[in-house]
């Protein structure tokens, strides 16, 4: 198999990434305090055992025969856009506040996905924001980030 062929198989690439990460973590955990009583395991022993299993199983995944249909995975732009929108929403929610940011997010996601019923989207954005505020803040007494609207 060529190197290109190897990297076109997503399982093998994933296994390779896990081997690298597990090796780094194995080195990071280092040697921990000696057990304080006979038979007791050090805090590092159990994670090391798990990391060794991850490395071993990843090696097995690399050498296991694969079907020809397993190729590289492409993340469609819509999926990626929603991931970025969600990350932005989380990043800004404490700064801008739930009440201001949530309707914007609820308007943007359907637009990005390709939904073009603007009235329904706007109505849903307002109703859902108000509904969640009512349930969490007024009924369950769980504070939501106020952001720009103050404490």
């Amino acid at each position: 198999m060529t190197m290109t062929g190897f990297f076109q198989n997503r399982d093998r690439v994933f296994a390779l990434v896990l081997i690298v990460l597990a090796s780094i973590f194995y080195a990071l955990i280092g040697d921990m305090e000696e057990p304080y009583s006979p038979g007791a395991l050090a805090a590092s022993t159990y994670p090391r055992l798990i990391l060794a299993c991850i490395i071993g199983l990843s090696c097995m995944l690399i050498i296991q025969p694969v079907s020809s249909e397993q190729q590289t995975t492409i993340i469609p732009w819509k999926g990626l856009a929603v991931i970025l929108l969600a990350a932005g929403y989380i990043f800004l929610i404490e700064r801008v506040g739930f009440f201001v940011l949530t309707p914007v997010f609820l308007l943007l996601v359907p637009l990005v996905v390709g939904y073009r019923h603007y009235v329904a989207t706007a109505a849903s954005a307002i109703l859902v924001t108000a509904g969640l505020y009512a349930v969490f803040v007024l009924v369950l007494n769980i504070p939501l980030p106020a952001g720009l609207l103050g404490d």
Partner: peptide, 16 residues
């Protein structure tokens, strides 16, 4: 029910 609206609601409920 329109699925895109549902997806955005699930995302907000998850964050909250």
């Amino acid at each position: 029910a329109p699925r895109p609206l549902l997806l955005s609601v699930i995302a907000v409920v998850s964050v909250v």
